[in-house]
């Protein structure tokens, strides 16, 4: 089942949405963004690394920096988001798919990092966290001297 592949909070809302997407895909054929692509995990995370750093990227549209909480220890990374539900007293909802208000995720990074040197930036709803690798985890170049 589709949901199993994605990292969803188990919520009937998601299932409904996913079901609707599948239905509309069935109607509109293969050209639309596929159901797999159209529904994203909350928050979707990408993790990449180079020799010196690990980078965690999260899509958190509508979130402010002070609504996000990051925890880093060793190779454990945690992200929490908490947003007051948008006050919508004067509007009536006809469709509600944006559900990113409360979330928490934890993951193991590909290597241990230096928590104190972590930098996070938030731009256009994308959070990028740069985590320098712990000194003893970085690849070392060993010079070979000729005798």
């Amino acid at each position: 089942m589709l949901l199993a592949k994605r990292n969803f909070a188990a919520s009937p809302l998601f299932e409904l949405h996913s079901e609707l997407d599948r239905l509309s895909d069935a109607f509109f054929g293969r050209c639309g963004a596929s159901a797999l692509n159209s529904v994203r995990a909350i928050p979707a995370l990408n993790v990449r690394e180079d020799d010196d750093n690990v980078y965690v990227e999260a899509e958190v549209p509508g979130m402010k920096l002070d609504e996000l909480e990051l925890t880093v220890q060793g190779d454990a990374f945690g992200i929490k988001g908490s947003q007051d539900a948008e006050q919508e007293t004067e509007h009536k909802f006809h469709r509600r798919e944006r559900v990113l208000t409360q979330f928490a995720r934890e993951l193991t990074l590909p290597s241990k990092v230096d928590a104190d040197a972590t930098e996070a930036t938030l731009k256009d709803g994308v959070l990028t966290v740069k985590l320098p690798k712990a000194a003893d985890e970085r690849p070392r170049k060993i010079e070979v001297k000729s005798a």
Binding site: E59, P61, H91, F93, R95, R98, V126
Partner: peptide
């Protein structure tokens, strides 16, 4: 992902377009 809202004055769409 999109929210569709309505009040007496308007309809409104809110869409997540991160990045």
């Amino acid at each position: 992902a999109v929210d569709v809202l309505e009040n007496e004055q308007e309809w409104a769409l809110r869409a997540n377009v991160p990045g």
